[in-house]
């Protein structure tokens, strides 16, 4: 007999937010204080919803005096990020440390390696006068083809040019840009080790399962308190915990390339509220027909969406894997 509840859009909502907070903070205390024997938490705060909720949960778990927020801007960062991070830290009474990582990124050749690849596509590109970003070239959500990527450059007058990215340039731009997330993680571990604290990682469930993170960059950390929560649930927690409304109302961005870019535009291709409900149906074994009837969509499209989710999960498995070490041993 099928004991599952009929599929609905509301299934995803946390029914008892207070209980969810209490379970998460209890586990944070158990993991960090008792299992890891660390004395507090270090978190990179970006003014985004995920890091804000992780910070608020950490304050509840350890107290404001045991949580340090690290703000790590670089020359392509939106100025809003720092301002919102400071507003958040002020509201929760935590100490912040600002670490500008532009110099470290220059040292790694992050910008020069990226710009060299951009110039191969657009010889006229000058990072002083143009902004750049990578976007998805076609919507692959409802068919079996994975997405291809477009490189866009935008001049001072706001005129945008787009070209398809070939493998060599795409890989070089992404590899160079990933220095940003990995440099930030290095800084977080510096402060965590100096204080004998743990690093709180901030990815949510979609970032984890769809592979929207940098391996050993923002995908690292000692604990991930919202790693199993849908974005809708993260917003529920944000409201409950008192995260400033300017942060709750802000559109999630990548804040990685010099041109502004939303996460939906770069990766998800679907508003998070819809993505959450479809993903919930997919991972809980509801059929495309059941989900389609509730969502007012066709079975064929939902079926294609589910195949897309499955492909994303499968092809990003490498990102989630720890180093393989079972080669030989007695």
């Amino acid at each position: 007999m099928d004991t599952r509840k009929p599929f609905s859009k509301e299934m995803i909502l946390l029914e008892n937010i207070e209980e969810a907070v209490s379970r998460i903070t209890g586990k944070l205390q158990q993991d960090i204080l008792i299992n890891f024997k660390r004395n507090g938490a270090v978190i990179g705060i970006s003014g985004g919803i995920d890091s804000s909720v992780c910070m608020a949960l950490s304050v509840k778990a350890f107290g404001a005096d045991k949580v340090v927020g690290i703000i790590m801007p670089e020359k392509d960062s939106s100025p809003d990020s720092e301002e919102l991070a400071l507003e958040l830290a002020g509201k929760f009474g935590i100490r912040t440390i600002k670490e500008v990582i532009t110099g470290a990124l220059d040292g790694f050749g992050c910008y020069s390696r990226r710009d060299e690849a951009v110039k191969r596509v657009f010889p006229e590109y000058d990072p002083g006068t143009y902004k750049m970003k990578i976007g998805i070239r076609q919507s692959g959500l409802y068919n079996n083809l994975p997405p291809l990527f477009t490189l866009s450059i935008i001049d001072e007058k706001g005129i945008q040019q787009d070209k398809m990215l070939h493998a060599r340039e795409y890989l070089q731009i992404v590899a160079a840009s990933n220095f940003k997330q990995r440099s930030r993680m290095s800084i977080l571990y510096y402060h965590a080790e100096a204080l004998h604290y743990a690093v709180v990682g901030t990815p949510n469930k979609h970032e984890q399962e769809q592979g929207f993170f940098v391996k050993h960059g923002d995908g690292a950390g000692d604990v991930m308190p919202i790693g199993n929560l849908y974005k809708t649930q993260v917003y529920q927690l944000a409201e409950h915990l008192g995260v400033p409304h300017r942060i709750i109302e802000r559109t999630p961005t990548t804040d990685t390339y010099s041109a502004a870019q939303t996460q939906e535009e770069f990766f998800y291709q679907l508003p998070f509220r819809l993505m959450d409900i479809f993903w919930y149906g997919f991972e809980n074994g509801y059929t495309a027909k059941e989900v389609a009837s509730v969502m007012g969509d066709t079975e064929e499209r939902v079926d294609a969406l589910f195949r897309n989710f499955e492909r994303k999960r499968k092809t990003t498995e490498y990102l989630r894997m720890p180093p393989v070490r079972d080669y030989f041993g007695i």
């Binding site: 994975p146 990527f149 070939h166 890989l171």
Partner: peptide, 22 residues
């Protein structure tokens, strides 16, 4: 054989395939 539906190629595989064909 449906090479994408059956998962022989991922996103990067598709990018490289296009480059190869071009």
């Amino acid at each position: 054989s449906l090479i994408f539906k059956e998962g022989y190629f991922d996103s990067m595989g598709f990018v490289v395939l296009i480059t190869y064909l071009e």
